[in-house]
Write a protein that binds this DNA or RNA. Structure first.
Length: 824
RNA sequence: GCCCGGGUGGUGGAAUUAGGUCAGACACGGUCGCCUUAAGAGCGACUGCCCUUUGUGGCAUGAGGGUUCGAGUCCCUCCCCGGGUACCA
């Protein structure tokens, strides 16, 4: 046995240099002959370059790399590129703090990331690398924006938008978490501002329906479904006779229409002051609305907050019964959802109930279980049963709730007072940001021509240099006067550039398309090239992007498909969401807790292979796992053992083929090697069971140690097999050991096939049970008939002693496995 | 509240896809041994719990029921933990 030591520091750089020099992982575009060799596009979410990569990145790329290697060696042309999501607030905030230009800090960080990806041995096609902040990339981001603008999918609108007072910019709904800015945690305010939106709501139905066509984790689909929030119901018109205006409301419960005893509008509703004007409540309404609009989004959103509101002094007509019901303004009604007004049905809605109690409004039950006409008002909306029927509902009374609902909607339709309707929770995507470090929006404002798109040939609109990035509620770009003042592309007169930049999620909504044709200067991509790679076959990243990035990217692809620019409906055919690596204390890593594990330190000490293998071995990759130094050492020990086998057996390269007709210990080793091939292959194919795959290779290595005297050809075969199987997880060591034994490059070798003859033994251990309890085990011949197995079991000592004195009721035989004797 | 996950040794986890091999692979930690002047590294053995019957013994996969010859795995009820989301009418 060798007593030399495994030194990853000597092994790993050698392979890294070779892969870099030879461009081993580069793959050419070959749109001419799609299908000749099966393609596989393996992609990890691109990193946001900030400082140095952390342990989560190592996990992400170790996972993707294992899949990429496995696909390559199972006969696929694999596209596995890398880039950087380089625009964004953190770099800009850092610039404000340190005075370092965001471009400088970002480029520095990109260099660090690039260095570590090499050092980790990730098999990346570096010929396609880019950063989203490069003009050669954002030129096409702007181009896509113009395509959206041309089709009305990008538009400007004044709306009550979420504003972060700290970052001094507006935010998308998706970027507000519990009423706070997801970046800085400050309470978000509502402001009435004109902003740029992308019309993602036009795709709500397809974004929802097409979830059924993709292979994503169920919980991610569920989150997207919730976020899209499709509700079926009806729109019903209530007329305010005094002003002669019709107000529509959306309801999911048209069956409760007869129970509407009041009508409520959102404080932001444009008609609120008009309605109250001249009534005795005018001053009260002004006070109330002003107070509510000054509240933060969080205060406003608290669910347990008591219901408040003010009467408007007007009534509307309930279309089904002609009743005049009073109008109110109340902050529990949201302007952004539905029509900004609701009918109040206190008997069948918790919120309406609370409001009715606060305002002392009547509560009328209109849906009740059979045999009851009136349900206690405080319980009416909780207990719903299938056999409920309508009561106090005029001509619809006594109908069951389901057909009553349909009948009421049909009646409304006939009378022109309403119709069936579907509502979505999803809102349009607010994409403009009043910040510096982002992609400029390529439009100008001309006094004569109004809003004018920058012509394609003038792209990119370059981000100007500015001295001061400090956010002041308007974009820092506005200070670059030379840049802002331009000429109108249409009339040639003076014009001003748009000074807002785009949300960085725009940049990352199409980067996976650009990788396919990254060096194309004439277009964002060649459609044929795109068709040869898309969709991404396996996408890998954190769940934190379940809604934002993953929804936006799906929207972009659908919009681009409608323009005839791409040929797929979904960008990511399969998605894998990885769990986090937690600190050794089980908490999320953070510098304040002092539990941060830096990948650089681990790789320095134990090598990239050990770090990568450990992260994959510690548990199922979709689960969170706590970091453990001793666990890492255990994996390092395993790799050392494999290395020493290579050192011992690999003096002069030769055959590593499976030896013919092995017997004795050699047969045991050959069987174990084939078992490991079968197990690892199975764990990798479709599943992501890297932890058990690595465990299987460990078992194989342990077995080789157990039989030091076995025939050397069998030991060489088993060791080379272990190296070949471990290569996707520990590429340097796998390549090293395989080369020592065979003289060949393991990545050029096809993935091994298990020899079916070696997967089954001649005999097996027959489990003998009595009443379901194991009482004996005997050796039986593989493929023996049932009668034979039954006879063996009944004859076994353990079974005889438990059957003795009882009557055998029946005997269950599971061929190849067990016999269960049932006795009374 | 609603929607997803998940509860298995001292620890991370395996077995859950089709119910079947005394449940616990692999690894960490622990105990002991070999080697060594010593330490380290390495190698090897043992390691779920219980027992005044140490036995081809009993118990055991969050709790309680059920289906079955047989349940960690399937069904019902409940408890606990994690994540997402929430005044969406």
């Amino acid at each position: 046995m060798s007593d030399r030591r495994y030194e990853p520091k000597q092994i790993e750089p050698r392979w890294q240099e070779l892969w870099a020099r030879e461009g081993t992982w580069e793959v050419a575009n070959d749109p001419g002959d799609p299908g000749a060799v099966q393609k596989s596009y393996v992609l990890e979410m691109l990193p946001y370059p900030s400082g140095e990569p952390h342990i989560g990145h190592l996990k992400n790329y170790a996972l993707g790399d294992a899949i990429a290697h496995f696909h390559r060696r199972t006969g696929h042309r694999v596209l596995h590129p890398m880039g950087y999501d380089a625009f964004g607030l953190p770099a800009e905030n850092n610039a404000i703090k340190t005075g370092v230009h965001p471009r400088v800090a970002t480029d520095r960080s990109i260099a660090a990331y690039r260095h570590w990806f090499h050092r980790w041995g990730i098999s990346i096609d570096w010929s396609r690398e880019f950063g989203t902040h490069e003009p050669s990339y954002y030129r096409w981001t702007q181009w896509i924006f113009l395509q959206l603008l041309e089709r009305g999918l990008a538009y400007r609108k004044e709306a009550a938008v979420k504003w972060c007072p700290y970052d001094q910019t507006v935010l998308a709904n998706e970027q507000v978490i519990d009423g706070r800015c997801e970046r800085c945690g400050h309470l978000v305010e509502l402001r009435q501002l004109e902003q740029w939106f992308l019309r993602i709501t036009a795709y709500a139905d397809r974004l929802l329906d097409d979830l059924d066509t993709i292979d994503w984790p169920e919980h991610v689909k569920a989150m997207q479904r919730n976020w899209i929030g499709r509700s079926e119901g009806a729109e019903v018109t209530f007329r305010c006779e005094a002003l002669g205006i019709d107000y529509a409301v959306f309801t999911t419960r048209p069956d409760t229409l007869f129970g509407a005893t009041f009508f409520v509008m959102a404080p932001e509703h444009p008609d609120v002051f008009k309605l109250a004007a001249g009534t005795e409540y005018e001053a009260q309404v002004h006070d109330y609305v002003n107070r509510v609009l000054g509240e933060s989004v969080e205060e406003r959103g608290a669910a347990d907050k008591p219901k408040t509101g003010a009467p408007l002094g007007r009534t509307v007509t309930n279309p089904v019964n002609g009743e005049q019901i009073p109008m109110f303004v109340a902050d529990y009604v949201l302007m952004e959802y539905g029509t900004g007004a609701v009918m109040g049905v206190p008997a069948h809605d918790q919120r309406d109930y609370e409001f009715a109690r606060a305002q002392q409004l009547p509560i009328r039950t209109v849906v009740a279980p059979p045999g009851t006409d009136d349900v206690p008002a405080d319980r009416a909306f909780t207990a719903h049963t299938d056999d409920e029927r309508l009561v106090n509902s005029g001509q619809f009374s006594e109908m069951d709730a389901v057909s009553g609902r349909e009948a009421i909607v049909a009646w409304l339709d006939r009378e022109g007072a309403g119709h069936a309707s579907v509502n979505f929770r999803l809102r349009d995507w607010l994409v403009s940001r009043q910040r510096y470090w982002g992609c400029p929006i390529p439009v100008v404002y001309c006094d004569h021509c109004g809003l004018v798109a920058v012509p394609e040939e003038d792209l990119p609109v370059r981000l100007p240099e500015v001295e001061d990035y400090q956010p002041r509620g308007r974009s820092p770009l506005a200070a670059a006067e030379d840049w802002v003042n331009t000429t109108c592309p249409t009339c040639g007169g003076p014009a001003r550039r748009e000074t807002d930049t785009m949300d960085t999620f725009v940049d990352s909504s199409w980067y996976f398309l650009r990788y396919c044709d990254a060096r194309n200067d004439a277009a964002a991509w060649d459609r044929r090239v795109l068709a040869s790679w898309m969709p991404v076959d396996q996408y890998i990243g954190g769940v934190e992007h379940a809604i934002l990035h993953l929804m936006y990217a799906r929207f972009f692809v659908k919009a681009l498909a409608d323009m005839g620019l791409v040929d797929v409906q979904e960008p990511f055919q399969a998605l894998f969401t990885q769990g986090m690596i937690l600190g050794s204390d089980g908490n999320k890593m953070s510098s304040s807790k002092g539990n941060v594990v830096a990948p650089s330190a681990i790789v320095e000490r134990f090598g990239a292979d050990a770090a990568r293998c450990y992260i994959l071995f510690v548990g199922p990759p979709d689960q969170d796992a706590a970091w453990s130094d001793s666990g890492l050492e255990g994996v390092h020990r395993f790799l050392s053992r494999l290395w020493r086998l290579g050192d011992e057996l690999g003096g002069d390269p030769g055959s590593v083929a499976q030896p013919p007709d092995p017997s004795g210990d050699a047969l045991t080793l050959v069987r174990k090697a084939n078992w490991a091939i079968d197990k690892v292959t199975d764990d990798m194919r479709g599943r992501f069971a890297f932890n058990t795959a690595i465990a299987a290779v460990m078992e194989l290595v342990n077995e080789i140690y157990r039989y030091p005297g076995a025939d050397p050809s069998a030991r060489r075969f088993a060791t080379a097999t272990a190296a070949s199987l471990v290569f996707p997880f520990a590429p340097h060591l796998g390549a090293e050991v395989y080369e020592r034994l065979s003289g060949r490059r393991v990545w050029d070798e096809p993935w091994p096939d298990a020899d079916p003859q070696m997967l089954v033994a001649d005999t097996f251990e027959l489990v003998c049970q009595v009443n379901g309890k194991v009482r004996d085990r005997v050796t039986a011949t593989t493929g023996a008939p049932r009668e034979e197995l039954e006879r063996l079991a009944l004859a076994s000592r353990g079974v005889r002693s438990h059957v003795d004195g009882h009557q055998v009721a029946k005997v269950i035989v599971v061929p190849g496995k067990l016999v269960n004797v049932v006795v009374r």
